[in-house]
C-alpha cells in the first residue's frame, strides 16, 4: 500500500478522535473483560483467571428474571416510542407546510433533549404520587374513589419515564428520513388512486424504514443500558441489568459487576447486529 500525503493528513486529523476512543472506550471495555475473570474479597479485587463470576451469574435465577425485565422494558418502550415518534414525525414532515413552522416545531420537540434527564424524572413526582395531580384529578372526576397506588414506583412509571425521555430519539431519525422522501412519489401514489392510508402503508412506511431502524437502535440500547431511570422511577423496587451492575459496584464487587457488564454488552451487540441487517447506517448519513 502506498502511503500518500493525503493518507497521512487523514490519519493526523483522525488522531484525536482515535486517541479518545482508544483510551475511554476500547481500554475500558478490555479492562472490564479482564476484570470479569478476577476474584473479589470483601476489601479488594485479586487478579486471577476464574469463571466464578460467570458461573454465579448464569447459575442464579435472579439473572434470568432481571434480563427478562430488561427485555420487557425495552420492548414496551420501543413499541410506544415508535408509535408516538412516527406519528409526530409524520405530522411534522407531511402536514406542516411552512418550513419555518417545521423548524420551530421540530426544535420544540428537541429542546428537552438538551436539558437534564434527572430533573425530567423528578418532575413526574408531583404528577404520579399518591396525592399527585393524576390521582387528585381522577378522584375529583369520580372515576376512582381510592388513590391509585401503581402510578408511581411501578413498572408503569418506569416505562412512562422511558417514553418521556427517549421518544425524541425516534422522532429525529424518522423525521430526517421522511424529509428526504421524494414528494413526487406521494403525488404519484395519489394520482394512481391510493387513499391516504394506502400511501402511508405502501409508500411512506417502507421508505421510512432506515429512520425507524436507527431510532430503534437508539431506544433499545438506551433502555437496555439504563440503570438510573429504573432505580429512580421504581423507588428501587424494580430491577434491570443496569441496576444489577450498579448494585455490585456499590458493594465494591467489581469482578462480578464486570461479568454482568460483559453479558449485557454481548446482549446489546447481538440486538444491534440483528437490527443492522435491515439498515446500512453509513448510507443514511
Amino acid at each position: 500500500m502506498k502511503v500518500t500525503r493525503e493518507t497521512v493528513t487523514g490519519w493526523l486529523q483522525a488522531a484525536p478522535l482515535t486517541v479518545v476512543l482508544l483510551g475511554f472506550l476500547v481500554a475500558p471495555i478490555i479492562t472490564i473483560v479482564i476484570v470479569s475473570f478476577w476474584q473479589a474479597t470483601e476489601f479488594s479485587i485479586i487478579p486471577a483467571f476464574s469463571l466464578e463470576n460467570y458461573e454465579f451469574l448464569f447459575g442464579s435465577p435472579v439473572t434470568y428474571k432481571v434480563f427478562a425485565a430488561t427485555f420487557k422494558y425495552a420492548f414496551l418502550t420501543w413499541a410506544m416510542t415508535l408509535a408516538i415518534g412516527f406519528t409526530v414525525a409524520y405530522y411534522l414532515a407531511f402536514h406542516i407546510r411552512s418550513q419555518t413552522m417545521q423548524i420551530a416545531l421540530f426544535l420544540l420537540c428537541t429542546i428537552p433533549f438538551w436539558t437534564s434527564n434527572i430533573i425530567r424524572m423528578i418532575s413526574w413526582i408531583p404528577f404520579l404520587g399518591r396525592n399527585g395531580i393524576a390521582n387528585q384529578t381522577l378522584i375529583s372526576w369520580g372515576v376512582i374513589d381510592q388513590p391509585l397506588e401503581w402510578l408511581l414506583y411501578s413498572d408503569f412509571s418506569v416505562i412512562l419515564a422511558f417514553v418521556h425521555l427517549y421518544t425524541l430519539f425516534m422522532v429525529v431519525p424518522i423525521f430526517n428520513t421522511m424529509m428526504r422522501i421524494d414528494r413526487n412519489l406521494i403525488e404519484a401514489a395519489r394520482d394512481n388512486g391510493a387513499s391516504g392510508f394506502q400511501t402511508l402503508v405502501h409508500v411512506i412506511i417502507p421508505l421510512t424504514k432506515p429512520g425507524i431502524m436507527i431510532g430503534t437502535i437508539f431506544v433499545l440500547t438506551l433502555v437496555m443500558g439504563d440503570f438510573i431511570t429504573v432505580r429512580f422511577m421504581s423507588g428501587s423496587q424494580r430491577a434491570n441489568v443496569g441496576r444489577l451492575i450498579s448494585n455490585d459496584i456499590a458493594l465494591l464487587q467489581y469482578p462480578s459487576a464486570a461479568a454482568t457488564a460483559v453479558v449485557l454488552l454481548c446482549t446489546v451487540l447481538i440486538v444491534i447486529g440483528i437490527l443492522l441487517r435491515f439498515v446500512n447506517i453509513r448510507k443514511e448519513l
Binding site: 476512543l21 475500558p28 471495555i29 472490564i32 457488564a261 454488552l265 446489546v268
Partner: peptide
C-alpha cells in the same frame, strides 16, 4: 468505533474507566 461509543451502555464506560 464511534457508533459503538454511542450505543454502548453508559455504565460500562463509567465502570471501565473507574477500574
Amino acid at each position: 468505533l464511534t457508533i459503538a461509543s454511542l450505543v454502548i451502555p453508559s455504565i460500562l464506560i463509567s465502570l471501565g474507566v473507574g477500574l
